[in-house]
Design a binder for these strands. Structure first.
Lengths: 165, 165
DNA sequence: GTTTATGCAAACTGTTTGCATTGCT
DNA sequence: AGCAATGCAAACAGTTTGCATAAAC
């Protein structure tokens, strides 16, 4: 007989739960040292880390955590919606924490195609978000989509790079 | 003595020249059969072709054109601004002609993360473009960037995929 | 004790590069 | 003739996978 209120099967699709550790375990995933270390790095260094960046930062304290684990953990985290997987067209993915517990500010990206510098901007975000919401509503209806995410990125040359030939 | 009006050195940075073939040759690049074939495929099948897609379509008529040439040509084309290199997070790049000679319509993309279906939408484009221009102006000034391009993409599940768990 | 997570090495995939040859102009 | 473009094969880079072992629960 099944006990009340207990998920026997891990619930791999649960979003909208509490925060980090709680959310993690609540979804049926195990909280290991490697995963804690990765979460730690992500919340300490807020912004655009590649798998290898994370590996480098985790490795000193946890030499036994391999790159594979980094990839697998990031995959879990982004499925849980805890982490955004970003792509700036460099041929490698980058990751950032979706939201701090206090609800970090939403931002978009400005990418220099010369030196790959990336600027998070929050200017104009309000207007953008407003318009995006409307667009999202319209697109959802017209194309019968369940829209979960969006990307806005500007590309160009930063002040240093636009000088060079 | 240098002849008037003739570029002895190929001008690899020339944008804003006439159209396609003219532009191509005008920039010091040679117009070869392979390149013509690739341009042909791009203008016939408007939208989101991967390098391999293009290879497949070019190959029957030009069995001697290899994948390497496809990549190299696409690189040239996107440097010339004739082709946009798109990234939908599938781990492969996709390409589309920037503008037809008649000035094809600007559009953005709606991507299904379930089946990778991609919808070009032009709805709301006017409002978006308006806002983007302003944002672009603001960002250019504030961060001293020379902005050349932007991306807007919505991600979600299409009507078929949102049913399946 | 059962099931998930990990490390390692090897496999994969899309893309790039070196070099000798071909082909525009 | 001279230099750019090509094909081929090999190199590359980031990411994924198979499998035996270790660790959470």
């Amino acid at each position: 007989m099944m006990k009340q209120g207990v998920n026997v099967m891990p619930d791999r699709n649960c979003r909208g739960r509490p925060w980090l550790h709680g959310k993690f375990k609540g979804c049926g995933y195990r909280l290991t040292m490697g995963r804690e270390a990765i979460l730690g790095v992500l919340s300490k260094h807020a912004g655009h880390l590649s798998a290898e960046d994370i590996y480098m930062k985790v490795h000193p304290g946890h030499p036994n955590v391999g790159l594979t684990t980094i990839y697998r953990t990031l995959d879990v985290l982004s499925n849980l919606g805890l982490v955004y997987k970003l792509d700036f067209g460099e041929g490698r993915a980058r990751y950032e924490l979706a939201q701090g517990p206090k609800g970090a500010h939403h931002h978009h990206h400005l990418v220099c195609t010369g030196c790959n510098k990336i600027i998070d901007y929050t200017d104009f975000i309000d207007e953008e978000v407003e318009l995006l919401k409307e667009t999202e509503r319209g697109l959802s209806r017209k194309y019968d989509f369940n829209i979960t995410n969006h990307i806005i990125q500007f590309y160009g040359l930063c002040e240093k790079c636009k000088g060079k030939k």
